[in-house]
Design a protein around this nucleic acid. Structure first.
Lengths: 340, 340
DNA sequence: CTGAAAGCGCTTACAG
DNA sequence: CTGAAAGCGCTTACAG
């Protein structure tokens, strides 16, 4: 019952299996693909040879044949360091796995050139499709660079509206949080968020600004900080913001990197005592939000579900269940208010 | 200056580029591989044809040739949902990228059968090597299933000691934290952690037990909870543990899933007031630990660095810079004590 | 410095 | 129900 390794020491091929089973390579191929007409006795013989030799199909050779799908999906994430995007990748992996596909993963680190290299390389692997959190460069994604394969944008879209997309309701969510803060009497609400370069930055800022306009108030540019910083820098930004004379009475961190930075700054300034610190709002749920000792508003949404839906869109394109113009899905958010 | 797409609509091949440049496919191949002797004028002609046709090398065809490396690394993680492992993957991706390789990523969800399927499929893609957080099944990793490619185990090892590995000092770290708690007079220290099935569970429990023995104390089995739960279940376990009569005076959560669950339970039971709750220790750093309002001991270590070192070991094996018996690296931990 | 031939391991027509 | 031939797109010897 012990399995014998191929004597050559190399991976056995269909020909070696065929020889071992006394059939042709075609028959082995048919047995392995399933669904083809093969005599039961032959099938058994082949399968036992497969086991005996420890045969494992060479996906590379298989994928080279025209008409064969590679069963590979390329996933490019702008900032793989962000736990929000880790969740997104998990959602994609889950669905890819269910459909018998694998994911090739790479992070662009918000770098256009890197992003371009990654997709070129992924295309070289003949991925069936791409799922991307784009850095913001439109040029990268021009159809002629994509070899005709479908792309789904996740979390961020391209200004052109090109490609399918799944995003959350950035504008609506940011507007609601800001409106709630304004309704509580805050008039100096700081904004920490992405630059206009990325769609989430544009849209969340728009929601913040719209809520001010609706309330007949102007945004104070001195309370607005925008960029794509790491947590440490986000914390420093938050520190300076809280230290200015005439500090904000509320701070809205519009992504989880700024959220964590802001909370670290608050902990440093106020310890665990509410004191006279500003009200806090964070766009993105985060683990341990129940430990925050200050009144907190969290805009909840589910990055893993976003990943699943992005994968679903792509898989439906691949199966031709979905055809025609780009489909744009927007997931809703919900506000959670908590007081310690 | 606009790039022309291949008229066939399909990806152009080296032959089409060759034809366009008036040379042979071999010459195109030589130009693209670099380093070969090609007349400068010919090279320029080829490169401009490459640009004109938008040629992108087919990695699948390239990888099929014997003697060519696939530039693919397979990464299998037991629990892709754990942010600790996300960091690990990031460290691997960083190094893989630097060496011009891509990663194929899949999660086994602590399922042996899934793990086996994944590595079989990865081998079918002719990955150059594997990096794995193994579920604990030894059978999966028997050399005859691995087709002779190198494997590096990360965070968890196999009992057999097979394969290179990078782990943290689980036993030493757990021993030190436990000893510090004992030194503070705690005698009823609860343990939340992985089962003996995985090496981290075995080793961290051993450290906890060793510290007790060194202090001449016995472990109370009623204070020990072991398994690989999701956060929600970890929180429930922590709740029941804290609710028993004669509750623990200290709780040691020996991974970040239990850590988060424990802190959620504490927040629910004690709000933000230290009250008479137990002392807390967590094996694994986590974001926002500065918000914890209770005395806290954190065992710090760097999962991303662990990922980098695992990748480095693998890459050195691939380049034959490292040969011979399995190499086992242990990363140190440091204890951070904080009081609110 | 450049090219014609062969083959990596599969699977799609096409025959029997 | 089964098989011999051809070819996917590259690159490694081997010749010039």
């Amino acid at each position: 019952m012990t399995s014998t390794t191929s004597s050559s020491g190399k991976n056995p091929t269909v020909f070696e299996v065929a020889q071992h089973a006394g059939v042709s390579a075609m028959t082995v191929s048919r047995v392995l693909s399933g669904g083809e007409q093969v005599a039961p006795a032959t099938r058994e013989r082949v399968l036992s040879s497969v086991r005996a030799l420890g045969y494992q199909r060479n996906n590379v050779a298989r994928a080279l044949r025209p008409g064969q799908r590679s069963c590979l999906i390329g996933v490019v994430v702008s900032n793989i360091d962000n736990p929000y995007y880790s969740q997104l990748v998990i959602g994609i992996e889950e669905r890819a796995n269910e459909s018998g596909r694998r994911i090739l993963l790479a992070g662009s680190s918000e770098d256009d050139a890197r992003e371009r290299e990654i997709i070129a390389d992924f295309l070289g692997w003949r991925v069936e499709g791409l799922i991307a959190v784009p850095t913001g460069s439109t040029a990268t994604w021009q159809p002629q660079h994509l070899g005709g394969i479908p792309v789904v944008f996740a979390s961020r879209t391209l200004p052109s509206g090109q490609g399918d997309s799944v995003v959350i309701d950035d504008t609506g969510g940011a507007r609601e949080v800001t409106a709630r803060l304004l309704a509580r009497g805050h008039t100096r609400i700081a904004f920490l968020g992405n630059s206009d370069r990325v769609s989430t930055g544009r849209r969340r800022y728009r929601g913040y600004r719209d809520a001010h306009e609706a309330a007949g108030l102007a945004v104070d540019p001195g309370l607005v900080v925008r960029g794509q910083p790491a947590v440490a820098n986000a914390r420093d930004s938050a520190m300076s913001l809280l230290a200015v004379p005439g500090p904000p009475t509320a701070v809205f961190a519009t992504n989880n990197r700024y959220g964590v930075g802001l909370l670290q700054a608050m902990a440093k300034l106020h310890g665990h005592h509410p004191a006279n610190g500003p009200a806090i709002a964070v766009f993105d749920p985060f683990e341990l939000s129940e430990l925050v000792p200050w009144p907190l508003m969290t805009l909840r949404h589910d990055p893993r579900e976003l990943g699943r839906q992005a994968a679903d869109l792509l898989l439906r394109r691949l199966d031709n269940e979905l055809t025609g113009p780009p489909q744009h899905t927007t997931l809703t958010t919900s506000v959670l208010e908590q007081s310690p």
